[in-house]
């Protein structure tokens, strides 16, 4: 149970790393370090059960940090990073649309 859970967290962290560093992420320090940590904890026996649980929790926290930072940045760039919006865009944000007149409003050239 715990082993399956830690494998899942490990793979998710690698996925985030890949997102951050591109396809060459296997050459990064973080990758090497995480792989080493994961393997060390895998072979530690029942005696170090507590250490294993702590390592799992720490890796979950790290996963949460990477994931939340990515999602927060995505939302930031989508909504807050582009400066001032036009009236029609503001309207669209709250699910409205500015009225349009099919034949034009009469004063366009």
């Amino acid at each position: 149970m715990a082993a399956a859970c830690s494998l899942r967290v490990y793979r998710s962290v690698l996925k985030e790393l890949r997102h951050l560093q591109g396809s060459e992420y296997t050459q990064s320090m973080a990758y090497t370090h995480l792989r080493e940590q994961f393997r060390n904890n895998q072979v530690t026996g029942e005696r170090h059960c507590r250490a294993q649980r702590e390592a799992l929790h720490t890796s979950q926290v790290y996963l949460c940090l990477l994931e939340s930072t990515r999602l927060h940045l995505d939302l930031h760039q989508q909504y807050h990073a582009r400066g001032e919006r036009g009236p029609d865009e503001v309207a669209r944000l709250v699910g409205l649309r500015l009225p349009t007149q099919p034949g034009g409003k009469g004063w366009e050239k």
Partner: peptide
Amino acid sequence: YDMYELRARTA
């Protein structure tokens, strides 16, 4: 937006 920021900072 707030929730992810709070999560990231807390983590």
